[in-house]
Each structure stands twice: as structure tokens, then as C-alpha cells.
Write a protein that binds this DNA or RNA. Structure first.
Lengths: 216, 216
DNA sequence: TCTCCTTTTAAATAACTGTTTCAACCCAGC
DNA sequence: GCTGGGTTGAAACAGTTATTTAAAAGGAGA
């Protein structure tokens, strides 16, 4: 049990530290200290710092996969409901409106500075979600959606969501700290993105070119 | 002249190295070696590593500010034209569709992991652009736009644009390398984002709540 | 109690970091 | 030619890093 305990203490402490500081700035000394274990324990149980990190990445991916489930496309819900639910779930997974889990931060860091395991994460974890989003978009947009537009529509939705995770500090600065608290809670953001995207997707085919005459 | 040369060689070499590796991973030894100057020259000319970095940030901001100018809001152009032009200019500044300059990478890194000088960059450089975007949105949306919605509309446009700079690798993986080349060139992206956003903004007030009945 | 194996501990190691030192160098101005 | 300022060079410094070592401690089985 002592072995389990020590190893687990390392994992528990290392996750937040890697997430907060990144791989480089996180030191094994900080981790061992935070875990209340001896410095050598990390190498004893995990081999080296990098193996500890990859084990945490694996745990992060497992954790992210479970928990919140995306809407069932075969349900009788309307496409607009499905999209709003999709956005809400994605934002919640991204940890918007709450202190983000270290698991999410770890995966997001992998996106931004892609390493060897990024491809695996995208293929195994993110692609299924993205495909289900595209199916919702199909239902919303109706017929006549070409392949490229379909992808770009998906990225327009994803991009809005990710923005609130990635550009959080910038948003606070531009909106002001006080306003950022009120106007950018989870519900308000997800409602906004859903409304914005539904209006866009439904109106998409009506505007083949931006209309030079002004209002549409 | 030799002084100019050495200092300039340091600046030229340090920019890409900081951009690529981030502040922590970039070492003064790497920089001095790449510049072909002595290790001590960096401290001789810049005081320390951090002062070199902030000087590079300043240069990056100057470079980004000049060159492409955002549309003049007082012109006789229609709001839709203005928005498309805004998006195009922003994407070009972000270096979409070309190999990104180190200057851009440096500023983007500041967004993602804000340091002490981030606030200055946002206030001095980004806020004016953001405000002009909000004015374009005002013209597109017409009356009755509350303060919070106005901000969120702005971030929906910005978020879509930034997504192509931040999530480039993920996009390539999800869309496939071949398709990413074709479907995500500068013109196609900017045209898409403009079209998507115009449809969304113009249709925004028509959907107070996502409509449960399906198509709108 | 003795033994064997796993685990923990503290210390040492070697590599790497930013920074400093100080002698050597260059090159105008006298 | 010499002098003195600014500049360069190689080495050393002090601090931190991940990693390794070897001894100590613990704990179960005989």
C-alpha cells in the first residue's frame, strides 16, 4: 500500500504542476516537495521526468474521454438544441467558467506546442467529437454544403469555443476584469456561441459573397 | 559599425530562437552561438537575457503595427466590405497562409502565457483594432445591441481568426494535410469567416433563443 | 531472530543555466 | 608610437537542473 500511496502522491502533485508551469518550468524538486516524498522516488517509480509526464498525459486523456457525453445524434432533439448542447459540453470540457482541471490544461498545451503524441490525441480523442459536430452542421445547413465549407463551418464553431480557453487573459484585459466575470460565464458564452453559430450556419447559403450593399 | 553589427546579429538570431522555443527553453548560449558572437556580448549590450527579450517584444510590436492598415471606418465602404477587409488584414497580420514571422509568434506567445508586458501590448496595440471591429459590428447589427453581446460578437470574430493561427497543427490533422493546403489558404479562410460572421451578426437579433423547432 | 526483498532516505554527481570577470584586442586622437 | 575608450574573448562563477548512488529502513516469511 505504501508503494501505491507514494506513486499516487507523485501523480496527484505532478499533474497540476506540469499543467501550470509547462514541462520545462516544472521541476522534479517542486513535484517531490509538493507530494511530500523523497526526490529520488520520482525516478524510482517512473524512470525519469519525461516518463512521468507521458503517464500523466495518458491519464489526462482517459479522464477527458469520460464524464460528459456529447448529444446523441439519433435522438429526437432538434439540430439547434443539439448544437447548443454540443457547445455547452465542449466549453465545460475545456473548463470554462471554473478552475480548469490540470488534465485539460495538459492536453491544450499539447495542441499549442505539438509533440509526438499530439496526433494520437487528435485522432483518438478529438476526431469523434469533431465528426459529430459536422453532422449537426449538416442538419442545420441543409443540402448543398460542399466538403470544404463543411470543415470550415466546424472550425468556426470550435474556434469560438477554444478562444475562451486560450485567450482568457486577453479577454479579461479587453473586457475589463469586472465585466469579464459577468459577461463570460459558462452559460452566457455557450448560449452566445450557439446563437451566433446557428444564425451563421442557417444564413450561410444565403450569402454567397459578402453583400456590398450593406445589410443583408 | 562593429558595435551595430554585433548587436544586430544578436537581435536577428535571438528573435527566431525565442519565438520557436519560448523564453525558458531559449538559452543565451544558443543565441550567441547562432549569432556568431561571444557569450558575454549579450549581457554587454542588453544587460541580461530578459532585457534582450523585452527589446525583441518591442521590435515585434512595431513590426506588427506597421504595414497593413485596417479599414477606415469613415470611408464610404459598406459594413460587410469593412468586415471582410478587417478579417483579411487580421489574418494576414497573423501570418496565415505563409511561414509565420518570429515577431508574430512572440506576440502570440505573450497572449497565451501572459507576462508583465502583455497588458501593455494589449492596450497599446490590440485594443484599437478591437474597437474598430466593434464599430463595424455596430453598423452590421443595427440598433439594440447590448454591451455584453457586443463584446461577445467581437470575440466570436477574433476567435475564428486566432484559431487558424493557434490550432494550425490540429486543423491539418483533422482536415488532412492535402485538404488543409487547398481549403485553408488565406483568401478562402478570410472569405469564409467574413461570410459566416456577417450571416451571424445580421441574423443575431432574430434568434433570441435557439429555436427548438429546428430550422430557423 | 534472521534473511531477503522492496522501499525510502540523504548525499553526491554531472550537466546546464545566466552572469561576471579580466585580460586581450582594436582603433581613433594625440 | 602611444594612450584610453569601447569592444571582444576565454574562462570561471554561482546557482539550479535531472539523475544516480549507496546506505538505511521497513516488513513479510521462516
Amino acid at each position: 500500500m505504501s508503494e501505491e500511496s507514494t506513486k499516487q502522491k507523485i501523480l496527484d502533485s505532478a499533474g497540476p504542476i506540469f499543467a501550470k508551469n509547462g514541462y520545462q518550468k516544472a521541476t522534479v524538486r517542486d513535484i517531490s516537495e509538493a507530494a511530500g516524498v523523497n526526490l529520488a522516488s520520482i525516478n524510482y517509480y517512473f524512470g525519469d521526468k519525461e516518463k512521468l509526464y507521458t503517464e500523466l498525459l495518458l491519464l489526462a486523456r482517459e479522464k477527458m474521454g469520460g464524464g460528459l457525453s456529447f448529444p446523441n445524434l439519433n435522438s429526437e432533439n432538434s439540430p439547434t438544441e443539439l448544437l447548443e448542447r454540443f457547445v455547452t459540453v465542449l466549453l465545460r470540457k475545456l473548463g470554462i467558467g471554473e478552475e480548469p482541471d490540470w488534465q485539460i490544461q495538459l492536453l491544450v498545451n499539447e495542441f499549442l506546442q505539438p509533440s509526438s503524441s499530439s496526433r494520437e490525441i487528435v485522432e483518438g480523442y478529438f476526431r469523434p467529437y469533431f465528426e459529430s459536430l459536422l453532422e449537426i452542421i449538416d442538419q442545420l445547413a441543409g443540402t448543398g454544403l460542399n466538403r470544404e465549407d463543411r470543415l470550415r463551418l466546424g472550425f468556426s464553431v470550435i474556434g469560438q469555443c477554444l478562444h475562451y480557453r486560450l485567450a482568457g487573459p486577453m479577454i479579461s484585459m479587453l473586457a475589463g476584469e469586472d465585466e469579464a466575470q459577468g459577461a463570460f460565464g459558462l452559460e452566457k458564452i455557450s448560449h452566445h456561441i450557439a446563437r451566433f453559430s446557428i444564425a451563421a450556419i442557417c444564413g450561410f447559403n444565403k450569402i454567397s459573397e459578402p453583400n456590398p450593399s450593406g445589410r443583408v
